[in-house]
Amino acid sequence: MTLDKLQMGTSARLMHIDSSATLRSRLLELGLTPGTDVSIVRVAPMGDPIEVKVRGYRLTLRKKDAALINCQKI
């Protein structure tokens, strides 16, 4: 499944990112590497963007971009 589909409060293990080169390398540099655990902290009041916790910090990204990140629910 993809990151945008995760429910608030659930965690997942990141798999691969399929995306344009720019966004992909940006996300990887931010530490969203395969095998890393993420959790959905909250969703913005209007349903987009979402806030995820990864490697100890919080990152906001739009659902459109989160949809490019594949993950496995844990």
Binding site: T22, L23, R26, P49, Y57, R58, T60, L61, R62
Partner: peptide
């Protein structure tokens, strides 16, 4: 151009 993706750290 391509709009920059929103990747915002919430410190």
């Amino acid at each position: 151009g391509k709009p920059q993706p929103l990747l915002l750290e919430l410190p």
